[in-house]
Design a protein around this nucleic acid. Sequence first.
DNA 1: ACATAGAATTGAAACGTTTCGAATTGCTGT
DNA 2: ACAGCAATTCGAAACGTTTCAATTCTATGT
Lengths: 328, 328
Amino acid sequence: MATIKDVAKLAGVSISTVSLTLNQHPNVSPETRKKVWKAARELQYQPNGIAKDLKSVRTKTVGLVLSDLSGPFYSELIRGIQEVTTANGYDLVAMSAIGGSGSPARYIREKRTDGMIILAHDIDSHLISQAGREKFPIMVLDRKLESDHVFSVTVDNRKGAYEAGEHLIRSGYRKIAYLAGPNDSTDNAERFAGFKEAMESHGLEVTPKWYIQGGFTKQGGYRAVKLLAAQHILPEAFFAGNDEMAMGAMEALTELGIRVPADVAVVGFDDIELAAYMRPPLTTVRQPMFDMGYTAATLLFRLLDGDRSVRSVVLDTELIVRESCGSK
Amino acid sequence: MATIKDVAKLAGVSISTVSLTLNQHPNVSPETRKKVWKAARELQYQPNGIAKDLKSVRTKTVGLVLSDLSGPFYSELIRGIQEVTTANGYDLVAMSAIGGSGSPARYIREKRTDGMIILAHDIDSHLISQAGREKFPIMVLDRKLESDHVFSVTVDNRKGAYEAGEHLIRSGYRKIAYLAGPNDSTDNAERFAGFKEAMESHGLEVTPKWYIQGGFTKQGGYRAVKLLAAQHILPEAFFAGNDEMAMGAMEALTELGIRVPADVAVVGFDDIELAAYMRPPLTTVRQPMFDMGYTAATLLFRLLDGDRSVRSVVLDTELIVRESCGSK
DNA sequence: ACATAGAATTGAAACGTTTCGAATTGCTGT
DNA sequence: ACAGCAATTCGAAACGTTTCAATTCTATGT
């Protein structure tokens, strides 16, 4: 691999001159310029990005950490982020938090990027607060967290869940089961709280019997329903903490010959792309994923610019009524 | 930001000793070890990853370039790759090729990773061949490309398309339109070739009239159908170069009151997750995305190990017959 | 011809690590 | 008491850039 030194030697000039030339500095004579380019081309010189980053303080890169890079659900989010980052002339690199706190934690700590956007509940809040710096701001999307250089963009889970719960209740359902996400997830906690609030404001009770763990996965939703069915206790409706679980649940119900929504209603949360294509189409609470990404990235850049007025943001959800909840 | 120098000063030892300690070198006395850790903790020292990478030849990172990070369709692929990379103790960072050849091209050239997996038709083959090095192997997934340190893992597009085409023909369709992807896409070219072959082997002709550009996007598929409908020329069946276009096409057909498959049949290519959920469920050619990712990553590591026996691989597709093609 | 402004070029430091060979220290055995 | 050795610790080079201050060169005005 040719280095700048090789180019300098071949062109018969100093290293600095090569650097200057390649970086379009004006004070380089046309002939020198030509010589350098020729040498660079001949050697197929490519600057070493790592060395460059070490010297220059900025990497012109924003990092994005997701729990699972392969999640279907981040598309819009990423689009939102990307729109802003490219507009700012920055790159975006994504990495997944899979496999515990190994890699991305390393990445976060070692700051190979100018800032981070994190949507991965398996990354420790403490680690995040600690990693945030003036020159390394962090935006968190899956929990509320605010410290000097860390801010969050979240969704009003509670309100969203409240509305969905209320809708279900208004439609006449009383025995409603909640399909829960992981206990360490703030999203889950807030959604459940909102749901519970709705129930209680209508004089309904939420018993532990109707709080069923589904781990935010399709599998989990599927199993939860099967489990209940095996015990011959089925609610009138399911409120799933996310769409993937709702999907699993509907699959299980269909397999059991239970009709949705005629026999049991289902609502989800997130409004992933698939939601509209399920059978029946899933009623769910829409998260403005694109906006979240867009907002997070925008705020990140404002932080990078030293703007001290940045504050955490809470965005609104929207109830999307489709067919799976029985009402029309 | 505390550097190793600060730690050394605070601990009252040399820089080398700090480095040795922090990297678990055996030859460090317990007391020194303790002093160093204490200082490091006090200063909240975090090694600078960039500096580390510059010195150590390996970055322990594999890069993945996708045309569009937000594509729904890469989930399984990423899982396949990730499985292998994490098993090897490597990190995976993904970046998108959106916005022209700007960022990832830079990344590829500047080699911030130990190797690359590329699935992005908008990255120039020439650039790729040129970037491949012994210490920087590249796997390409969307085209056939083989040079010293570049290999590909592809799918037998031609055969897959042939089978799908044949299935359509066997089912009695004659006037079949092909919804095409971008002209610079090898995938598209091969799929079309396979389809054409199937047609011709049954004595059917493929006229330019039935080759319609859809750009591999849902939008494109939608528009293509609308365009045809406006001219009152509709084929008996559509063969879409990918599922997204098929989805758009079906949407347009439905809007026009044309029933699928009763009036017009549709088949796609890829078998994205959504395919099974479309209405009617989409008949399509399944690409073994997980396997592709897994294979690509495995070969990449073999290349990194200096294995000279690595060759490009072509994987088989599978025709998934659902309802959208009319046959059962 | 000559001082000098300005342009072009260069040398060297700096970025924060790792690593290797050398230097220092403390023991062991005689 | 001291040679010899292993265990520690250290100094300095190296990784490939950028950048700033210093130097050299060229051309200008007097």
